[in-house]
Write a protein that binds this DNA or RNA. Structure first.
Lengths: 183, 183
DNA sequence: TGGTCCATGTAAAACGTTACATGATTCC
DNA sequence: GGAATCATGTAACGTTTTACATGGACCA
């Protein structure tokens, strides 16, 4: 149910086309939600049918035309009703941990490689987040309320990734002993 | 696709009925995967049809009969093929962060309350994880390889929850200033 | 001429959620 | 007498993923 809310929050921040949204969900919005362009287009169609957003067609000459979506009053009300409800913990689903749980079935060496690979991916993401922090939030004291809220979501992403790096290091160090001296 | 792998990994660790699995997914397996009993029964039927698991009916007098599932050779092969493939980062979807991103639309006071509530939920989960750590992993040095792998998944859960607590505290402290002196 | 970017979508299959359904036993 | 536990499922619906589809502009 929350994809619609993620889209509304993002559109409220800045009216955009489906294509733009898809890119944002792949970038900055990506630190709290993930969605493919197919999902986004379908959800936009639904939100428009429900009058929560309106589209304005922008004619472009060197490029395909695009539809610029904005949130309506009804959409804002719909979003605020959701904001007023309390949320529960999000369910955990992590392929890597399933794999690790059954890790004893494969070579310790292969598992260490996999963890190193994961560590690299998290490292890359952390660098991206930190670049956003440096570029868009250089002076935290000077932020508006809205800016502060957005900054806090970014901080969450940064802390998460740092946690991952720390855990990967711990796990790699532990498994290293199996590689050196297998039981 | 990974629900099947999570079930196989868990069944390989210990043959069980659907009911038992559902409870484990709600408990210890819950720190890396989440699934309802309906999903589990459906997936078990599929896995049995694919010959990845076999069922043995256990007659019980004071209780309903149950089907005890075990992983077949074919199931083990299927799982190991998956274990050999490298996994990508798991997509992030977090209601709380969507809410926070649009947090400027509601009262700072309401947002602080919500964060306190979340903090409590994470705290509860952390205590559960630590209880598992104390009960089942009192001597980390003495663990078998299999035990070590399972311990590492638990450590991941613990670190995560500690990260959440830290972030919640940071966020609450930041928002507190809005409650005391609104812009 | 081959790839990436812009821009929008459809369709089918897999996966997840919610509600419904049953029935004995055990504990308070 | 009522609730929880054990134990299994079905059905409808909603969401997500994967694959397919189009077509011009721009760059090397």
């Amino acid at each position: 149910m929350a994809l619609s809310h993620a889209i509304l929050v993002s559109l409220l921040d800045c009216p955009s086309s489906g294509y733009d949204l898809a890119k944002r969900f792949d970038g900055s919005v990506g630190f709290f939600w993930d969605a493919s362009h197919q999902q986004i287009y379908r959800e936009l169609a639904k939100l428009e049918a429900a009058n929560h957003i309106t589209a304005e067609t922008i004619e472009q000459d060197a490029r395909p035309n695009k539809k610029l979506y904005s949130v309506t009053e009804s959409g804002k009300t719909f979003l605020m009703e959701w904001l007023d409800q309390s949320v529960s913990l999000c369910p955990i689903k992590d392929d890597l941990l399933v794999k690790l749980y059954g890790g004893y079935l494969i070579e310790p060496d292969a598992m260490v490689k996999e963890l190193r690979q994961q560590r690299k991916l998290h490292q890359t993401r952390l660098v991206e987040y930190q670049a956003i922090e440096d570029r868009f939030f250089p002076d935290v004291e000077a932020l508006s309320q809205k800016g502060t809220y957005q900054y806090l979501t970014l901080r969450n992403g940064i802390q998460f990734e740092q946690g991952w790096l720390k855990w990967c290091d711990e796990a790699i160090a532990t498994l290293q002993s199996f590689v050196e001296s297998p039981e």
